[in-house]
Design a protein around this nucleic acid. Structure first.
Lengths: 145, 145
DNA sequence: AAAATAAAGGATAAAAAACTCTTTTATTAA
DNA sequence: TTAATAAAAGAGTTTTTTATCCTTTATTTT
């Protein structure tokens, strides 16, 4: 697994919010939880964190909820992963060796480094805004049944 | 993280055993644990499992220990990962969606599938025997300090 | 101002993963 | 044939991750 469950939910939630909301239209936790098929209370915690870090916007009270402003549409998958899971996927030795490096490579280092580069590029180039457009066009899907 | 801790240890142990042992020379748990910098009792459990599944060979009693026969030298990283972590890294949706598929792709499916293919190829082509040779030649390193 | 709504926050619980300890079994060598 | 050795097996414990519940705070509508 590339991501923790928390991170999977976070990414899905961000895409959902980007796709469903605007300055005018907010979405509530309950709707998000249903929309991305995640435990309501769990995603609430995650949204709290994303909001605190400014990845999503939130408004309390009636007609409140979460939305994403233009700036946040530029958030990348990489940004979310770094926030939730940290940089280990992008930097840690694939075999878990503390001192693995270009100079002292672990037995998988040299083969894996190219793949890792691709993973990094891929997630760095994936912007929430652009991804949510594909969902809008029914090219890709967030919830499947 | 691509692998579980258990899986990391398993791979490192297999490489160590491949590199250190032969039909004649066996290595004991203690030596393996030191050699790959892993908790002794934990790696013992893992070795038990690898041995039961025939990935490594073992002999009890004095002068006993673990070794790897010629056949087992052909084991791939992929084989070990499949045994320990299952096939989720190779098949499960990167966003954790149950029904994600070519027909109904999740928002990351199409970009990620190429990277995934590379990961699969990489580990399928990495044989323990060949990897341990590189360690032998001091081209790569299992323990670093 | 009061009632209702919705997120924020804090505390707890359950499940899984990582790790440890002790006893048993097989094998070998004295 | 007994003692020593080393893995196998089983039974914990600890830590981390995942998930839930309850109270508080902010905001809005009536």
């Amino acid at each position: 697994m590339l991501f923790s469950k928390t991170c999977e939910y976070a990414i899905r939630a961000c895409i959902y919010i980007a796709q469903q909301s605007g300055e005018d239209k907010k979405v509530a936790i309950k709707e998000i939880a249903k929309g991305i098929d995640s435990p309501e209370h769990f995603i609430a915690k995650i949204l709290q964190n994303l909001s605190k870090k400014g990845f999503i916007n939130s408004v309390k009270g009636p007609n409140g909820g979460f939305y994403m402003d233009k700036k946040n549409m530029k958030t990348t998958i990489s940004d979310i992963v770094l926030l939730i899971d940290g940089d280990s996927l992008f930097t840690k030795c694939v075999l878990g060796l503390k001192q693995c490096s270009e100079n002292k490579p672990c037995p998988l280092h040299n083969q894996y480094k190219h793949t890792r580069k691709e993973i990094i590029e891929l997630f760095r180039n994936s912007k929430i805004g652009q991804i949510s457009e594909q969902v809008d066009l029914n090219e890709t899907f967030l919830k499947l049944k």
